[in-house]
């Protein structure tokens, strides 16, 4: 399972550089469904730091950071059900 987690995380980080935007998002969701994936949040913040122009968060909203935090923490109950 740890191998699976690493593979998905590496895929997510690489796809943030080269793949269409939905691929890293799918990786975050897959990681969050099975693990307490702090790397999902790291992936989200990396996408924002990489691609989002610098500016006030109201103008340049860090969508991927916020979405990854919501996904990782929001999927906690569902993940616990799956892990039961």
């Amino acid at each position: 399972m740890r191998f699976f987690r690493i593979i998905i995380a590496v895929l997510g980080f690489l796809s943030a550089l080269v793949a269409p935007t939905w691929v890293p998002l799918v990786c975050i969701v897959i990681l969050s469904l099975r693990f307490r994936a702090w790397e999902g949040i790291l992936l989200g913040v990396m996408i924002d730091l990489l691609w989002l122009p610098f500016g006030a968060p109201i103008t340049f909203f860090p969508f991927y950071t916020v979405a990854s935090i919501i996904i990782v923490w929001g999927l906690e109950p569902l993940r616990l059900e799956l892990l039961r």
Partner: peptide, 11 residues
Amino acid sequence: VSSFRASPYGT
């Protein structure tokens, strides 16, 4: 030095 399609913000 980057991909055109990877950015969700059109950058």
